[in-house]
Design a protein around this nucleic acid. Structure first.
Lengths: 207, 207, 207, 207
DNA sequence: AATGAATGAGATTTCATTCAT
DNA sequence: TATGAATGAAATCTCATTCAT
């Protein structure tokens, strides 16, 4: 029972997507503040005023764009998480997928950590936060449930699943960021292998 | 018994510190961009123009302030790193110290990750980056040398020391950020224990 | 019967002219530097920001305004120069026309000599200079060709045409300036007669 | 009956001269407005505040400096004007002297025409004007009296002496300015010869 | 007399947002 | 719905001038 949209609505959606695409490019390059609606409008091939018929204001445009990206990211991870493999193997593939995604979208990931809390201080910052947190929570919950499965199967220690999920995210995100800021070419597979090993075995020898 | 600085110079230093202190508060609350010199000047109880006799411009003030904070942070960690204890124990204490520091200075840590790369795009961003990277590298190197010591003593696997150092930082910073953004009261000791365990043993049971 | 410009474009041109007119008055009264965009905007009955949709910045506005005036001045002189009269008579009329023009636009002529070289030191001064010099050269060349004609016809000595053209300009401009600065009401016809006589006969009796 | 100054007064005068000398350099390079007291103070090797014990304010410093220069200029011309030679010859030497002076002090001459009227609009502009005009009038009067002498001796036509004096000044000043603005190396002797010839014989052949 | 830190008014410029067409 | 001209608040930075030492 798919929702069918009228031609008008479909065209409107398409234009909205065009604007989001232009916004992505400009925001990624300049950041939330330095990006101007003039530039986005020009890139989207609309007049500046037109943007306001699709988005409330600059911040709404920004957040809408980021939201879209997070959703896409989530979709990619869901693919991996749903595979029928041993938890440790899924975790390994998950880390690889995350690193790849961060790597390919580093500009946006940077934006995310850059502006996410900055938005909180802005006008209507609370709403912004409210729009983001659910996405993050769902992402985290998905990974946490993988950990829970691993524990249930005896593959993982009885470790806090939520914190572990967060740790996975932080390790991947942080590694990508560090490489990026050091202007090193990111060795994604290498980083992923390292992180996976660290996560699974830790660093202690047990002696 | 030589005076190192003349009275005038000492007073000037003290005033400079006052301005940095005011800047810290305002920047932490508002972020680099939303903070205004008007507000900083008012809080520092100086005229706006006076700030320009101490700092080149807004960004210089911002970076000077952050630099100071990083240096302080580094000092704290050095204390821990120099203790005469088994590497695993030092690592454990290090994680606790980091978590505490992040916890108590979350506003600034947020700033750091927020604006660090934002600065890169700004006017003179390269200089900014150049002013920060050394501090980060030194920090990372200090932790890496602890890992190296652990490996030499047979306490740690032959794991990449630099990447491990980065991982420690990312896990702590990320955990603090996550708690902060979730508006959860940060359970520092709990987080620290979790991270230490994760780092040392990993999550896999080996089965 | 094609419309050369759309209604919108025509209106925009008209508004641009309004701004230039207001700028002329304010700049003439205050000079480039002391004039403020606030005052110009108010006089033009536009918001300050609006000026920036018509001109790049203050200097562009200033130079655009002066350029317009020079062009108008040149047009007036061309009328005289193209008359079918003996060279000496044309010269006489030219001097009168110059004096009248300087007289009626003393405020601007003052500006011109005031700021012309001042602009050279400013940001983008070279461009400014580049925008002005051609106008001056064309003006000078037009008068020089009159002198050349006079020489060819045997009416004038074999005197350097370019220098003579410059001398004509300098005598008129200087006389107008001198009167102006002495706050004397300028006796244009009297000055013109004097300058013409000086130019044609010189002051020496030949004895 | 020379006025003797105490050592203190002499030292004060010397310092005043040092400041004027520094001011000359900076004003000539930057113009009245763009020049800063900071730069002048530094060049004079005094603290900024010290300038205010010697001059009322920036404008006073500026005008004082220019006044000094005009006086020096006047002295040079007086030497020529007092020579015991035929008027036409004196005029010729005068033109040469003027051209040389303008040539060597073009930066200042430019300043003079640039800022003289600009000052009129400034705060206390009238006083400024009042300080300059007498110098100009005396200069003009000195040349006019030469013309009068020439007329009395039958060497010159019965031409308006004041206007003629002004014309001499304008021709020299204008020629120097024109060369300067065209960035041409000024051919002072050539210009002087041209101007002298123009002044004495005019351009008409009499046919 | 000399200093130079402090001041704060004031200028230019940017840009998100509005609104008449 | 689309436009883009107009707006004007706001922000950074400069610098002549003052004044306590």
């Amino acid at each position: 029972m798919t929702e069918l949209l009228s031609r008008k609505d479909r065209e409107r959606q398409a234009k909205r997507q065009d604007i989001l695409k232009a916004a992505r490019v400009v925001f990624a390059e300049k950041g939330l503040h330095a990006a101007t609606l003039d530039e986005i409008a020009e890139k989207a091939e609309f007049a500046k005023g037109t943007l306001y018929t699709y988005f409330e204001n600059k911040e709404d445009l920004f957040v809408s764009m980021l939201e879209q990206e997070i959703l896409d990211f989530h979709e990619e991870l869901k693919l991996v998480l749903s595979r029928d493999l041993p938890p440790a193997e899924i975790l390994s593939q998950l880390v690889r997928a995350m690193m790849t995604a961060f790597d390919q979208n580093m500009d946006l990931m940077r934006l995310l950590s850059q502006e996410r809390s900055a938005l909180a201080t802005c006008r209507g910052g609370d709403q912004m936060e409210a729009r983001f947190l659910p996405h993050f929570h769902r992402l985290n919950a998905a990974v946490a449930s993988l950990v829970r499965r691993g524990i249930a199967q005896g593959a993982f220690h009885r470790i806090d699943p939520e914190r572990t999920a967060t740790a996975v995210f932080n390790l991947c995100h942080g590694a990508a960021m560090s490489s990026y800021l050091n202007s090193k070419k990111v060795d994604s597979p290498g980083e992923a292998a390292f992180i996976t090993a660290l996560l699974l075995q830790g660093i202690a020898t047990g002696r």
